[in-house]
Design a protein around this nucleic acid. Structure first.
Length: 532
RNA sequence: GGCCCCUUCGUCUAGCGGCCUAGGAUGCCACCCUUUCAAGGUGGAGACACGGGUUCGAGUCCCGUAGGGGCUACCA
């Protein structure tokens, strides 16, 4: 017999939450559908974070796998906010979570923003539902009211054991009496005292748990809020979730959850306990609370989605990066589109082992994605970064600069030190210090000579295309005995003011002949003044 | 402490009993290319945690040990 709420509770709930949402013909509020084979039909998966702050990359990967599975099976992906711990709720969390999904392009079918037929999708707005089902569990002998005080509980914990089930067998009359006295209570689940519970995990297979090792977990707190244990099951049932995906830290409470499903006599969904991300050194779970990590180069390691955005990563690269942790596309392919991933993704193929956060690979992947990006996309991504840094960006100029940057950027932000000078106020250009201007194995005299000669050579050029410049300067180098690198490097430094830049002649072409010559003369004058 | 999960190159992974003298990627090193920085090309070093079984045959199955991770809250 399937659990259903008493008429009073059901009607009050219907009025509150289900008005017009469920077909009126639904016999009772539970109206769950029979779930079919795991991979047969459309899947409904969910990501159910607590709103405790910025979106963490670990949670994002968990969400990604749920999302991929839903998309693979043509189902729905649901976002549900689990804010049953009032103390831990952080305002603005939902916005940050949504921003993360939007940035990565993970579309949500049902959720607090999107709405949907099984809302509300925020647990604090569903309190009556949990309370009604908790009451149902008590009435049907699957749960009981526990009046133990926090002091009592602390004593029991201090004594080494957990809660001793002292109210498990309290008579209904006595419980009513205690309640009438105004004693606060929680509702606890009556976990079977003997036997084993076998949980089937999609990734790991069957897992056995001894029931006598389990506690009588709290389902409903004394403040009327449910715990995760109750709330997620009630919601997963009502929201018709077909596959529950969550991090491995939930594995120890798996048997508890299974027993609750059983107590309700609801057909349980399938479960996949996903591996988690460990710190880059492999020690400990990657956590948002722990200290910041830095890589070998001293660069701080991003762990919040916001940090990936700020660090100049492409969302497609981050998605690809996440897919490659604990799952792989196959065919020895490291780089693939999200559409390709959807075609092949299966929870069953997820590696059960936790993994160290392989952040070093992201730089490589990101540079690969930048190389493959179209000109338009590259410009579109680069523009706001330049503008944020205070440059005023001319679209046409950016269009000419971007291709030179394509193979040189690990991160979009690298555009700043590499090519920011293109977007500076040219009239304010000042030549570099002599230590940048003078190339290796050259002195000030030679540098001055090269600059002086280059001005003459380049001035005569009618065709200022890079090839023409290069031909002219290469023959000059040959004639004078300088290495190409010495001559070209001097020009680079004079014209860009930098040691590292895009290719010199392409750069000068974009600056234009007049501006390039002006800069060379400026450099020459500055050098002569410095050594005088 | 108890319970649960996990264990292939530094790292991410392929491998689902013979195709493995273990493949790919990243990182590292070398060389090539080269106007800087990159990119690209070629090559190199680099792993089945350990010990028992099962089997004609084990990285692949079982047991144990060790190591790692997690849970053990009126947090999720």
């Amino acid at each position: 017999m399937k659990a259903s709420l008493c008429a009073a509770a059901a009607s009050s709930f219907e009025r509150l939450f289900l008005d017009g949402a469920l077909p009126k013909s639904a016999k009772s509020i539970d109206g769950g559908t029979e779930l079919t084979d795991s991979n047969a039909g459309p899947a409904r998966t969910r990501y159910a974070p607590s709103p405790t702050g910025p979106q963490h990359i670990g949670g994002m990967r968990t969400a990604l796998f749920a999302w991929l599975f839903a998309r693979r099976h043509g189902g729905q992906f649901i976002l549900r906010i689990e804010d049953t711990d009032q103390k831990r709720s952080v305002p603005g969390s939902l916005e940050m979570i949504l921003q993360s999904f939007d940035w990565l392009g993970m579309d949500i079918d049902e959720g607090p923003r999107e709405g949907g037929p099984y809302g509300p999708y925020v647990q604090s707005e569903r309190l009556e539902l949990y309370q009604a089902w908790a009451a149902w569990l008590v009435e049907n002998g699957h749960a009981y009211k526990c009046f133990a005080s926090v002091e009592e509980l602390a004593e029991m914990r201090a004594a080494g054991a957990g809660y001793d089930r002292r109210y498990r067998d309290t008579s209904a009359a006595r419980a009513a009496n205690l309640e009438a006295q105004g004693l606060p209570y929680v509702i606890r689940f009556k976990m079977p005292l003997t036997g084993v519970t076998v949980g089937e995990d999609m990734i790991r297979g069957p897992i056995e748990f001894d029931n006598d090792k389990m506690q009588d977990a709290v389902l409903l707190k004394s403040d009327g809020y449910p715990t995760y244990h109750l709330a997620h099951i009630v919601d997963d049932y009502h929201m018709k979730i077909s596959h529950v995906t969550r991090a491995v830290e939930w594995l120890p409470s798996f048997p508890l959850h299974l027993q609750i499903w059983k107590a309700f006599a609801w057909e349980e969904p399938q479960f996949a306990h996903l591996p988690v991300l460990l710190n880059p050194n492999g020690k400990g779970k990657l956590s948002k609370r722990k200290q910041q990590f830095t890589d070998a180069a001293g660069k701080s390691v991003p762990v919040l989605v916001q940090e990936f955005i700020e660090a100049g990563y492409l969302p497609a690269a981050v998605m690809n990066f996440l897919c490659n942790i604990g799952w792989n596309y196959g065919d020895n392919e490291e780089i693939f589109s999200i559409a390709q991933a959807i075609e092949r993704f299966d929870l069953k193929d997820v590696n059960p082992a936790n993994s160290a956060y392989p952040i070093a690979k992201l730089d490589w992947l990101n540079s690969q994605y930048i190389q493959r990006a179209g000109d338009d996309e590259l410009c579109r991504r680069l523009k706001p970064i330049l503008e944020k840094a205070g440059y005023s960006v001319d679209g046409e100029r950016l269009k000419r600069v971007a291709p030179l940057l394509r193979v040189r950027l690990k991160s979009l932000n690298d555009v700043l030190p590499m090519a920011g000078f293109f977007f500076d106020d040219w009239t304010a250009f000042s030549p570099p210090a002599v230590d940048i201007l003078i190339q290796r194995k050259m002195d000030d005299q030679q540098t001055a000579a090269v600059l002086r000669d280059a001005i003459l050579v380049l001035e005569r050029l009618d065709d200022f295309a890079p090839e023409a410049q290069q031909a002219a300067m290469a023959s000059y180098a040959k004639a004078t005995g300088f290495k190409n690198g010495q001559v070209f490097g001097t020009l680079r430094a004079a014209v860009t003011g930098q040691r590292v830049s895009p290719p010199t002649f392409e750069t000068m072409e974009i600056l234009g002949k007049a501006e390039s010559l002006r800069r060379l003369k400026l450099a020459l004058a500055s050098l002569q003044q410095a050594v005088a």
